[in-house]
């Protein structure tokens, strides 16, 4: 196994994902199979190549910049409209720090 049950639980924790015990077992098997396939990447020699982080095409260096002009935002009411819980113009969340 390329990935242990403990690692699956650790990664789920990093991802803020609550998994059931059944899901942990299922994902351990799935991830293992997929990671074995990912190992193929090691067959290919890449030490002389740069990573490609994005699609590049011929353009001026500043082509993707826009003028820094002020424009209206969404506004408080619209921004909060989809919140599961909001009040007094703020998103409301469960207690973070115990008093």
């Amino acid at each position: 196994m390329k990935i242990t049950e403990e690692q699956v639980r650790y990664v789920a924790d990093l991802a803020n994902l609550k998994l059931t015990d059944d899901e942990v077992r299922k994902f351990q098997a799935d991830l293992n199979e997929i990671l074995v396939h990912f190992d193929r990447l090691n067959e290919i020699e890449t030490s002389q190549f740069d990573p490609m982080a994005q699609v590049l095409y011929e353009a001026e260096e500043t082509a993707t910049l826009r003028p820094d002009r002020e424009r209206p935002g969404l506004g408080n009411e619209l921004a909060l409209a989809n919140a599961p819980l909001a009040s007094s113009g703020y998103f409301k969340v469960p207690e973070v720090i115990k008093r």
């Binding site: 991802a15 994902l17 609550k18 998994l19 059931t20 973070v96």
Partner: peptide, 27 residues
């Protein structure tokens, strides 16, 4: 608490394929 809220919301909300990809990507 807040951390439980994140975890439970995502655990209950995402379907199996999204969870699998989040797990893979985080790994």
């Amino acid at each position: 608490n807040l951390n439980d809220m994140y975890r439970n919301t995502r655990g209950e909300g995402f379907g199996a394929e999204c969870k699998r990809r989040i797990m893979l990507g985080t790994y």
